[in-house]
């Protein structure tokens, strides 16, 4: 039986799992939307991934975790930050990438890669939700549009309006008063996306613009965000298939490195991974169904 490695990205609103075999082929990638950080979400993503891969828990011998909840998972052999992992994952998906823009639920980051694909510089938002998925979420609610539809709606607008507040709370009041003035929803939404784009351009400015640019993270699924950001950066953004799982993929690749460098010396606690996974998945308290959204396993060169 082949050995496998697992990368898990425990984000603020989603959990993502990627499983690779020892040759570097993706055998599973799964995303679970579970609201706030929860190990329920993690369990769901793990179940989904194992189902998809059709392997036993014991086949996985190395686990690397990333994302905000990375240190909450004792199944991981080690943790690596989402910056390092996203860079690695994005680079695997798009080998020529020189800049990675990742906008997630709670944070946004811009990572510049050097010619060898290593992280050269990075910038990350501070505590505030400005320029993150959260910002979009709050304002979608204010305008009363489904989060998934807001991008398409925004693109219908023929003009935009400036949303000057960076803070989500203030922007919300601003949006409400624009609605009160009778501005069309689409126009306001266009403004909202433009605002997120200009925040991101600010982050890009901190590390310097390098083409080609790859965009990953949940917000990469939002067509208006991609449109306005591309316009603001005067470039076409590359959204690879599997953009959402780039972090988990990066983590899995680091796990693969670990496996390969350690293969000479067989670690005596390889079984420990299985035990921990079992424990996590068999938690009798909660019975979690597998995740609803299995991504088609992405292909790339490991």
């Amino acid at each position: 039986m082949k050995s496998h490695v697992l990368g898990i990205d425990f984000g603020s609103t989603t959990a993502k799992v990627v499983i690779l075999d020892e040759d570097g082929n993706t055998v599973a990638s799964c995303v679970s939307q579970k609201g706030a950080v929860s190990d329920e979400g993690v369990r769901a993503a793990l179940r989904g991934a194992f189902e998809q891969a059709g392997i036993n828990l014991s086949a996985v011998v190395r686990v690397v975790s990333t994302g905000y909840g990375r240190r909450m998972l004792d199944i991981a052999d080690r943790t690596i930050t989402e910056i390092t992992c996203h860079a690695r994952g994005a680079r695997a998906l798009v080998p020529e990438a020189r800049l990675v823009i990742d906008i997630g639920g709670q944070d946004s980051k811009v990572i510049a890669l050097d010619r060898n694909g290593l992280v050269a510089r990075f910038a990350m938002n501070d505590r505030c939700a400005a320029g993150t998925g959260k910002f979009l979420e709050v304002l979608a609610r204010a305008v009363n549009v489904e989060l998934d539809d807001m991008g398409a709606e925004a693109l219908k607008a023929e003009e935009t309006v400036a949303i000057t507040s960076m803070c989500a709370t203030f922007a919300e009041t601003e949006v409400i008063s624009l609605l009160a003035e009778g501005r069309p929803k689409q126009v306001i939404l266009a403004g909202v996306h433009q605002s997120i784009a200009s925040r991101t351009v600010g982050l890009v400015g901190r590390v310097g613009k390098h083409d080609p640019i790859v965009m990953t993270g949940g917000v990469a699924q939002n067509i208006a965000a991609v449109h306005f950001l591309g316009k603001a950066l005067e470039t076409r953004l590359i959204i690879p298939t599997g953009a959402q799982i780039a972090g988990a993929l990066g983590a899995a690749l680091f796990a693969l490195d670990d496996l390969r460098s350690a293969s000479k010396v067989k670690r005596d606690d390889d079984d420990a991974v299985e035990g921990k996974l079992e424990q996590l998945l068999a938690d009798p308290q909660r019975c979690t169904p597998a995740c609803g959204k299995k991504e088609t396993p992405v292909t790339f060169k490991a």
Partner: peptide
């Protein structure tokens, strides 16, 4: 810097 002004 007009971004600091909140008319409401």
């Amino acid at each position: 810097d007009e971004t600091f002004y909140k008319d409401e």
